[in-house]
Design a protein around this nucleic acid. Structure first.
Length: 371
RNA sequence: CCAGCGGUGACCGAACGGUUAGGUGGCAGUCUGUAAAACUGUUUUGAGCAGGUUCGACUCCUGCCCGCUGGACCA
């Protein structure tokens, strides 16, 4: 595969890459591309994780990248997920979260064997180098920098922090070097950690990241936009972050194992201001999920004759323009999105139906979360 | 370890020795060919923990736990 073709697969439907130049160099000097994306084990797996992130993993695989999915049990514990209960975190990692990711990958035709899953406890156990790297990273990060970085944990300024919170960012940075990852992948909310990793990379002496020529390099970072939640912007906070689909806000999210009716109901209730294109979850989904960041693709709108009859869009901009002019009514677009999702997520639903571990895991996870 | 202040329902946040604070969020309904907004209704009458005083305590007292600020120790 040509370098440019690889780069296209690697970078499409992403918000930024740090840096394109670095990526090109890696490919051209024959360095094996090693990717990773990490997830906290908290609530249920939603579209952002299941479709946006896992879809990107499918892209990486197409480009011949080795992909690792890091199940961040330690990070979940530090960030007090699932009540900060070790037992629940460990259980959910294996029996629910990993299963949901496998199910999500199936939506892109990717099998479990094509990627590597790894848990924090397996990475850290008997790994002195990791802990040395963790501390070495700490030596190159100031307290104020670290404090700013805790936004990667979903903590805003002014939140109370305990020491465990402060361990989190350097731990995440150390993970990259311990796994020898040169392609760090995450949502835009994680960029602070990756930027720290890049700025610290060349200073490390214990376990630096090397390219094929043996030079110290900084990991390339790929960030995707956060998928919009169902609720629309909160109050007057018109920012991408306020739109975020969040595991911890179940009412804002569609989960990969939702039933067709749940999907229809949730989409129907989504924020959908007519003719307004900014901060509009519907268009956000069409753009990043259905068209996968490309100009062309396909979305079929089915609607009664009196509202214009069926139409097939093949260009994203046509959808946006028709929406803006009012030719495309929000509900009609919603119905189309819901049906598209139902089809796209079918392999995931089937997996949760057919695989006993996944099925039981989901049932217990629901209990655990009190639903 | 010492001192001051504080710990209220998912979250924020008042008053008060004795009747539902209120707000946000969530849910349901009305209204719009969706949603939002608006309006209506609704959400384990909750009080860090353990005792005590009282006819009655979230409200007073004691102890403990946790947090913040300052001090002490290190110097």
């Amino acid at each position: 595969m040509e370098t440019q073709e690889k780069i296209n697969f690697i970078t499409r439907n992403s918000q930024e890459i740090l840096t394109g130049e670095d990526l090109k160099n890696l490919i051209e000097n024959g360095t094996e591309l090693r990717h990773y994306i990490g997830f906290e084990i908290s609530g249920m797996v939603h579209l952002g994780t299941g479709l946006i992130s896992m879809g990107k993993v499918a892209d990486f695989l197409k480009a011949g990248v080795k992909c690792k999915i890091f199940l961040a049990d330690f990070h979940s514990y530090l960030n007090n997920k699932l009540g900060g209960n070790w037992e629940n975190i460990r259980w959910a990692t294996e029996n629910y979260f990993k299963q949901a990711l496998i199910a999500s990958l199936k939506c892109f035709g990717v099998e479990e064997s094509e990627v590597e899953f790894i848990m924090g406890k397996d990475l850290y156990e008997n790994n002195l180098t990791h802990w040395e790297t963790f501390m070495e990273v700490g030596k190159h990060v100031t307290l104020s920098r670290n404090l700013r970085s805790i936004s990667i944990m979903g903590k805003g300024q002014g939140t109370e922090v305990d020491m465990a919170t402060l361990f989190y960012p350097p731990l995440q940075v150390a993970d990259i070097f311990t796994m020898k990852v040169n392609l760090a992948h995450a949502g835009m909310d994680q960029r602070k950690a990756h930027v720290v990793a890049r700025s610290v990379a060349k200073k490390l002496v214990i376990n630096p990241l090397l390219n094929a020529k043996g030079d110290k390099i900084a990991p390339v970072a790929i960030h995707q936009n956060l998928i919009a939640g169902l609720g629309g912007p909160e109050g007057n906070e018109n920012s991408e972050i306020s739109l975020k689909m969040s595991k911890s806000k179940p009412e804002s999210a569609i989960f990969v194992h939702d039933s067709p009716d749940e999907i229809r109901n949730k989409i129907k209730k989504a924020y959908g201001p007519p003719k307004i294109v900014e901060f509009n979850p519907l268009l956000n989904w069409v753009k990043t999920l259905i068209f996968w960041g490309e100009e062309t693709g396909e979305l079929k709108i089915e609607r009664p004759e009196k509202f214009g009859g069926d139409v097939v869009y093949t260009k994203y901009m046509d959808i946006e323009n028709d929406y803006k002019s009012g030719k495309l009514f929000p509900l009609d677009l919603k119905n189309a999105i819901a049906e598209w999702l139902i089809v796209k997520l079918k392999p995931a639903r089937d997996y949760f139906e057919e695989n006993k571990q996944a099925k039981d895991g989901l049932a217990k996870m629901r209990e655990l979360l009190g639903k």
